[in-house]
Design a protein around this nucleic acid. Structure first.
Lengths: 339, 339
DNA sequence: TTGTAGGCGTTATCAC
DNA sequence: GTGATAACGCCTACAA
């Protein structure tokens, strides 16, 4: 008494079909595809021919289920609209693709809760490892990771607690660009911050430290808004800043979007940049070199971060390098006309 | 004689473990999670408690394998660095997430061969449907799709062959912005094109049609470069164009990046925009409203395209709406200072 | 409303 | 180098 045949997924061709067509057993097909050197050339050819003839596409689900390895890596980033993370993704992609791994992209929208939900959801795919943005995550998030024993690499920043991380010191970068403004003779240097994520707050900390060092920190020169940054917001914040503190003589914006909006507003208002007001951004996005005047900013090695983080994670997954590493890729000041 | 236990994936907690903890059978756990209304509240609570207590995360692989449905949708786009596609992705994401579907993102880098490889690779995940960018794909690509009987929706453009598509007429958009330049009194209107993908070529066709209509098409005013567009390229192309045809009085750039680079170069060279040379872009990216002078461009409903395309695909997957649709979401001219 | 039996497509393990 | 067998974790079909 046979039952109704079930619906088949994909084109319906299975490894057994290929095996039958090639006159071998299923396991030989599996080996011919995954460990070719373990199969004699003659059979290997037969198998490959059958694969092509039938249009066979292996089922990742079955493979994952049987082997307990998904050859998949989860990447969690705060935003897909930010070039910074796209460049990082591009770097990751090249490394993973070469190693035969695929990438699951999760966009947390800068929200720790959403990040946790994403992790939960994507854990269903049993990723072999995770690439994370930033060091701070919701407490249950870290628990989940541990519970599942998932190798993780933290990107964009540097930890000192033994976690594997690839990035640069956000704080030092913020301090460095602030010092540059000080060297230009500015003394009442303001800070425009949006989004207020972990990294922005560290840049702010660096800014404060540099100013304190020079004896000219002034809390009244900081303007912070938790909303996502945009050029419009940069323009608005510039208005607010100058209205509140007309004596302000420089602005460090937490990212280039803000800076470019502020710069455009300066143009409209006829404010002399950098003489009357110097402006600096962060990240060195494409428009920074093209706006008027060109924007002084901090170039960040985000593509390289993606590449190195992916390599480190693959090493952890393969068990090659059990020990965690801490990779500082640095940053570079791009000094242009706006300062 | 029992064998060695195999390595378990995930945290090692399976549906059976949950069932045992809750004192029910595995299938009841499955139903409590997937069709809650089919399980009595009492048992449902017990199950959910056990799920939480054990930190159970279902295995998508097992589910996919057993049900022949992956609840996964493949999205193929030409680039991750282009805001246009990111906005589309964002739209898709909201719809899919709400429906409990996950999205696999494939970046073809504007390359038909890579796109085919991506499809092959991602078919291993047995997606339930595909969202595609543009109408033209490699021939084996369409074969593969058919062979696997995959529901597909084509985004960004409009087909007339019964395929399900959501977008707007690239050609009409190109014609419309060209007509606007004609209305401004321009007669020697040039075209700057990069990337030269399907959509750029259609915008070019629209540009030609509009000029031919007005009796002033001039093939010597077209500058085309298959390399990816950038602001730098826009600046370089402006130089080349004016060197070759100093009589050129307007430029339609195939995208905003090019236009903004050209605009910036005009500023540097002291070329009066729009009096001496009008400039128009395409897509209405954020900087278009902020550059100097602000950029006339074509606003495209890309987020909405993502939303509607995802909805259409889900309908096809669920079998609600077997018939294909052709959804024209239109475009809008954004007339600003550069024309 | 709940449970039992069996199979989805692949790979690990152990024999030959 | 090749093959038989038994999992992997879940869901469909059917039965109670």
């Amino acid at each position: 008494m046979s039952r109704k045949p079930r619906v088949r997924s994909g084109s319906g061709v299975t490894m057994h079909d290929v095996a039958r067509a090639a006159g071998v057993s299923a396991i030989t097909v599996s080996r011919a595809l995954n460990q070719p050197q373990q199969v004699s050339p003659a059979l290997r050819d037969k198998v490959m021919q059958a694969v092509d003839a039938l249009g066979y596409v292996p089922s990742r689900s079955a493979s994952t289920l049987a082997s307990a390895r998904s050859r998949t890596v989860l990447v969690l980033i705060p935003s897909l609209g930010n070039t910074v993370f796209l460049d990082t993704l591009a770097g990751i992609e090249t490394v993973l693709a070469e190693a035969g791994y695929q990438m699951l992209i999760g966009n947390s929208h800068y929200d720790a809760d959403q990040e946790l939900q994403l992790l939960r959801a994507y854990l269903q795919h049993r990723p072999d490892g995770v690439l994370l943005t930033g060091l701070s995550h919701a407490a249950p998030f870290d628990d989940l990771l541990r519970r599942h024993g998932l190798p993780a690499v933290y990107m964009m920043d540097l930890a000192d607690d033994g976690r594997c991380c690839v990035g640069f010191s956000q704080e030092e970068a913020g301090a460095a660009i602030t010092r540059h403004l000080l060297e230009r003779g500015k003394r009442r240097i303001g800070f425009l911050g949006a989004q207020l994520d972990e990294r922005v707050m560290k840049r702010l900390a660096g800014y404060r430290a540099a100013l304190a060092e020079a004896g000219c920190h002034d809390a009244g020169l900081e303007w912070l808004d938790p909303a996502p940054s945009s050029m419009q917001m940069g323009a608005d914040m510039l208005d607010a800043a100058l209205a509140a503190r007309p004596d302000c003589d420089a602005l460090f914006c937490c990212n280039d979007d803000l800076a470019i909006g502020a710069l455009a507003r300066c143009q409209q208002l006829g404010i002399a940049v950098p003489a009357r007001l110097a402006v600096a951004g962060f990240n060195d996005l494409q428009p920074a070199a093209w706006c008027t005047p060109s924007l002084t900013t901090v170039a960040t090695p985000r593509r390289e971060i993606g590449i190195q983080a992916a390599r480190a994670l693959l090493a952890m997954i393969e068990g090659d390098a059990p020990q965690a590493l801490r990779l500082d890729l640095g940053f570079a000041l791009m000094l242009r006309r706006s300062s």
